[in-house]
Computed example of a mutant assay.
Amino acid sequence: MPETLESVLRGDWKFFAALSGIALVLGGLMFATLPALTDGMAGNPEMVEMMTAYSAYGY
């Protein structure tokens, strides 16, 4: 086990930086595609009805 948190960060900073970068890119892609996904669903009246009725069956 490493002695301190500082020793872990000193040795693995490149790994953590790459992991953070990948997460940022994936989050950005998901955020960018969200309007396209919701636009396709909102135009469909059957989908809107299904989504509003679904909450009646929960809990």
Score class of each variant (00 low, 15 high):
residue 59 Y to D: 08
residue 59 Y to F: 06
residue 37 L to D: 13
residue 54 Y to G: 04
residue 37 L to Y: 06
residue 12 D to A: 01
residue 57 Y to M: 02
residue 10 R to G: 14
residue 33 T to D: 11
residue 55 S to H: 06
residue 38 T to R: 15
residue 36 A to N: 13
residue 46 E to H: 02
residue 23 A to K: 07
residue 18 A to K: 15
residue 3 E to R: 05
residue 12 D to K: 14
residue 28 G to E: 10
residue 59 Y to L: 07
residue 27 G to Q: 13
residue 48 V to K: 06
residue 16 F to H: 05
residue 54 Y to D: 04
residue 4 T to G: 04
residue 13 W to C: 05
residue 13 W to M: 15
residue 31 F to E: 10
residue 32 A to I: 08
residue 15 F to Y: 10
residue 45 P to E: 09
residue 24 L to E: 07
residue 14 K to I: 13
residue 37 L to W: 14
residue 46 E to Y: 11
residue 21 G to H: 05
residue 17 A to D: 07
residue 58 G to K: 13
residue 8 V to A: 07
residue 26 L to D: 10
residue 10 R to T: 15
residue 23 A to D: 09
residue 37 L to C: 06
residue 22 I to D: 07
residue 39 D to N: 05
residue 31 F to H: 12
residue 3 E to S: 05
residue 47 M to V: 15
residue 56 A to L: 04
residue 50 M to L: 15
residue 15 F to W: 09
residue 39 D to P: 01
residue 27 G to T: 14
residue 49 E to R: 14
residue 32 A to E: 09
residue 40 G to H: 04
residue 28 G to A: 09
residue 8 V to D: 04
residue 53 A to R: 12
residue 54 Y to P: 00
residue 38 T to I: 06
residue 4 T to N: 00
residue 9 L to E: 13
residue 9 L to P: 00
residue 54 Y to Q: 14
residue 45 P to I: 04
residue 10 R to C: 05
residue 50 M to T: 12
residue 47 M to L: 11
residue 35 P to C: 03
residue 46 E to T: 11
residue 32 A to V: 09
residue 14 K to G: 03
residue 10 R to Q: 15
residue 23 A to I: 11
residue 20 S to W: 01
residue 2 P to N: 07
residue 44 N to D: 14
residue 53 A to F: 03
residue 7 S to Y: 03
residue 23 A to Y: 06
residue 13 W to K: 14
residue 14 K to A: 03
residue 21 G to R: 00
residue 43 G to V: 09
residue 34 L to T: 13
residue 23 A to F: 11
residue 24 L to N: 09
residue 45 P to D: 10
residue 11 G to K: 00
residue 41 M to S: 02
residue 41 M to C: 00
residue 40 G to K: 10
residue 51 M to Y: 10
residue 9 L to Y: 12
residue 17 A to C: 05
residue 57 Y to H: 05
residue 44 N to L: 03
residue 36 A to G: 08
residue 7 S to R: 08
residue 43 G to H: 15
residue 48 V to M: 15
residue 47 M to R: 02
residue 14 K to Q: 07
residue 40 G to Q: 14
residue 56 A to F: 00
residue 25 V to A: 07
residue 44 N to E: 06
residue 29 L to P: 04
residue 5 L to W: 04
residue 9 L to K: 10
residue 41 M to V: 09
residue 30 M to V: 09
residue 33 T to Q: 12
residue 2 P to M: 03
residue 39 D to S: 15
residue 52 T to L: 08
residue 20 S to R: 11
residue 18 A to D: 15
residue 5 L to I: 02
residue 9 L to V: 04
residue 23 A to V: 08
residue 54 Y to T: 08
residue 58 G to D: 05
residue 27 G to E: 13
residue 47 M to Y: 08
residue 11 G to M: 02
residue 4 T to C: 06
residue 50 M to H: 08
residue 38 T to E: 15
residue 31 F to V: 15
residue 44 N to W: 06
residue 44 N to S: 08
residue 54 Y to F: 08
residue 31 F to A: 15
residue 11 G to C: 01
residue 11 G to R: 05
residue 57 Y to E: 03
residue 3 E to H: 09
residue 6 E to V: 01
residue 40 G to D: 02
residue 32 A to M: 05
